[in-house]
């Protein structure tokens, strides 16, 4: 039953333009705890598509995201990014977590340049300085280069984390509840910001969230996951015009999709 549903979702996705990121029958078992975290997951993400994933806590969303990022090996199945199987961390993947995980002993700019410094050394990072400054400017952090993380608010810290993710020009963004620790007002604001960034870059993104309105607001497609073991139970296309505004979230068509996602989620919970 579950596999049928997910296959259905995949067929819808396969209908249009090229898949950039594909999970093919990915499963995960944690032998130490004798825990089957993921049942076969099939997921296709088209180039330029924004896919959000929602599901009960502990259903394996983070695990799936880490497998797609090459940070965790799949027990079975495989992930293919841009035609090449993912077997380890890749330079064309940008990743972001719930906490900004900025290094407190580095300025905002030095934090943004960290991925370059690690991959290509300090000299390369120095030569890329101007690019990093521009990325910071693009998220409204002008003149914040020399500021240390403890002087930043939660929202601003996450903006720096976005910049750190963007600075290496990844072809796909993987986001694990990136705004989950922020207050609701900041969070709404950050969602608008993220939409703007992704529109401007025509970015391909996969984002895990536990907020239904957030999932709907950002997504071209919402993937619903159910628990124990985690599997995709539904996929819902979101055909709202872009750019979406916070205003739209109070409209009936938005509410309809939110209710639809919620009903699927409840179904997932009963199983």
């Amino acid at each position: 039953m579950t596999t049928e549903v997910s296959r259905l979702g995949s067929e819808i996705a396969a209908g249009s333009s090229k898949d950039l990121l594909r999970a093919e029958g990915v499963t995960k078992t944690f032998p130490a705890r004798d825990l089957r975290a993921l049942d076969p997951i099939d997921l296709r993400i088209r180039s330029g598509e924004f896919v959000t994933m929602i599901g009960p806590s502990g259903c394996g969303k983070s695990t799936l995201l880490k497998i797609m990022a090459g940070l965790l090996p799949a027990t079975d199945g495989r992930v293919v990014l841009d035609g090449r199987p993912v077997v380890g961390p890749r330079t064309d993947v940008g990743i972001m977590f719930q906490q900004a995980t900025l290094l407190p002993w580095r300025t905002a700019l030095e934090n943004v340049m960290l991925p370059i410094e690690i991959r290509h050394g300090a000299r390369a990072a120095k030569s890329m300085r101007q690019d990093a400054v521009e990325v910071l400017n693009s998220v409204g952090l002008d003149e914040f280069e020399k500021v240390y993380p403890h002087e930043l608010s939660g929202g601003m810290a996450q903006r720096v984390a976005i910049c750190r993710m963007l600075v290496t020009q990844p072809s796909v963004l993987l986001l694990d509840e990136p705004f989950g620790a922020l207050d609701e007002l900041t969070r709404d604001h950050m969602n608008e910001e993220l939409q703007r960034i992704c529109e401007a870059r025509n970015a391909t993104a996969f984002m895990v969230t536990h907020s239904i309105p957030e999932a709907v607001f950002l997504a071209d497609r919402v993937v619903v996951m159910s628990a124990r073991p985690g599997c995709i139970s539904d996929e819902i296309e979101v055909k709202l015009a872009r750019p979406r505004t916070l205003d739209m979230t109070t409209r009936e068509e938005f509410g309809k999709i939110v209710r639809k996602v919620r009903s699927k989620l409840d179904l997932g919970g009963q199983r």
Partner: peptide, 24 residues
């Protein structure tokens, strides 16, 4: 998560130690 981040950008064990764990 910081360790995951370092791995995701391809940091070696030495880089993770020197640039992340020791300052931390």
């Amino acid at each position: 998560d910081a360790v995951m981040l370092f791995r995701s950008v391809g940091a070696s064990r030495w880089q993770t130690l020197v640039k992340l764990k020791l300052p931390n």
